[in-house]
Design a protein around this nucleic acid. Structure first.
Lengths: 101, 101
DNA sequence: AACATATTCACCTCTAGGGGTGAATATTCC
DNA sequence: GGAATATTCACCCCTAGAGGTGAATATGTT
């Protein structure tokens, strides 16, 4: 799922949508309002966020309420943290070699 | 730069290249060897990783040595960490409302 | 000079993403 | 029933990405 998560996060519009939802649940139209693009485009972004499981949808009549799901964010954070650790180790080793060489 | 970083990380081949480079500097051909795709494709992935500043290139004769640059990873980790904090706060508020409601 | 190796360049194909518009669907309101 | 609202569906266009092949370039080797 990392692929879909990171791809979803790679777009600034989608990151802005997530930031908006961090303030609280909202309908698609409310989410779309601040953006200069069409409602339709926002709807597609939302669909990608759902596919990445970063956003959940609760349908109530004609209103679709969107909310955040933090789980995939953890997975992404874990991968990045693991890489940072590995890289730091490697770069640390290199420094040791340079210092003792 | 977040866009390019997250987009670069969204591809599994590129993540594998980064993991390989975490073991140490390597030439393009060495990096490409384990992959079932053409050397050319790997070369293109490397170019994207360079564009995202996750990989640096040191040219020595006909050999191009690739190494990691951890800086953009920090930026990505920071953004995700900030979001996790925001989301946790929001979800916490919701729980309070539910508990006291 | 001739050959081999390392890498990229130039091109092709296919698919997916981001944007748009207009119509369809579902629901609510009068 | 009829109108307004909320959302998606079905298309269109354009660009970028991921894959490929074959040629060009540069360096190393004999």
């Amino acid at each position: 799922m990392l692929d879909a998560t990171l791809a979803a996060l790679a777009d600034p519009t989608r990151r802005a949508i997530l930031s908006r939802l961090a303030e609280g649940e909202a309908r698609v139209t409310e989410v779309a309002r601040p953006f200069p693009i069409s409602l339709n485009s926002v709807s597609k972004h939302v669909r990608m966020l759902e596919r990445a499981k970063l956003v959940r949808r609760r349908i109530e009549g004609r209103d679709h309420f969107l909310s955040l799901d933090p789980a995939p964010l953890d997975e992404a954070a874990d991968w990045i943290a693991a890489q940072k650790k590995l890289w730091a180790w490697r770069l640390g080793e290199l420094e040791k070699v340079l210092a003792h060489g």
